[in-house]
Amino acid sequence: MLETIVFSLINGLLYGMLLFMMSSGLTLIFGMMGVLNFAHASFYMLGAYFAYTLGSVTGFWIALFLAPVLVGVLGAVVERYGLRRVHQFGHVPELLFTFGLAYVVDELTSLFWGTVPVPYKMPDSLNFTLFNLYNFDYSAFKIFILAVSVAMFVCLYLLLKKTRAGLIIQASLSRPDMVSALGHNVPRVFMMVFAIGCALAGLGGVVGGIQFVTEPGMAVTMGPIVFVVVVLGGLGSVPGALIASILIGVLQTLALSVDISLASVFSGIDVSRDNFFSTIWYMESIRLAPVLPFLLLVLTLIVRPRGLMGKREA
């Protein structure tokens, strides 16, 4: 039993931190700009593909820095020449714009890199077993992901809360006219925020592309779960996103690791197998696990619409 719990906690933490890497940029962009970026997962995918292509020339370590920067620059261009023009028409056109952008990026990706997965592999320097727990190997790369995501959280938190730039960014959202009157270029602040958000997604892609599969469908499959994290954590809250990510990771892993069903918990009550609802009663947690995050999403919106740490309603 202890073994199962330890496994679930560690695997859940590792998966959760990877989720955080993908969702932190999204919550940043929403929290600071109010833009719900549907194309976020596409920038995540671009990060993976850029790192794969650059990595074959420069090696992994340089690509680890270059790819997110490239994605960030691309994000800046999208904000400057796309979003900013749409922005004046309100939030719905913005949303539609990012929605369309996601499709464009997906199609372009399969045009450039083909529809077959690309062989994007981890660097040899991280391809070894770091430690072994209950006979289960943990590779150095997994711990590397953990380290990168922790560093990302700390930097982001310090940037927003402790620096002047962070103050200006936060002020630009609530009091844009005043910030502008003080001589700051508010549109440029927004552009920077969008670029940073995209770069974070790109960074998530650089490691996520190795951990998972780098193929044109990766954006679509990752899209929904990222939104769950952001809503659960509270729109715009970076610490919230962190907690939500870990929560989802651990919960999902736990549900997969233990065999429980309503029937086994309430073993005193006897429900006939012929009953129409007996499917739910006898459903094992392992089959429920993949739906859990979405169940959480729905519950959050009903019970606590602003999420765990959010300040605004979703």
């Binding site: 496994f7 695997n11 998966y15 990877l18 997969l256 993949p290």
Partner: peptide, 15 residues
């Protein structure tokens, strides 16, 4: 397991 939805197979592998 559900088709096409599992990203992280580590828990299954643990089992």
């Amino acid at each position: 397991h559900p088709i096409g939805q599992v990203r992280d197979f580590a828990p299954y592998v643990a089992r």
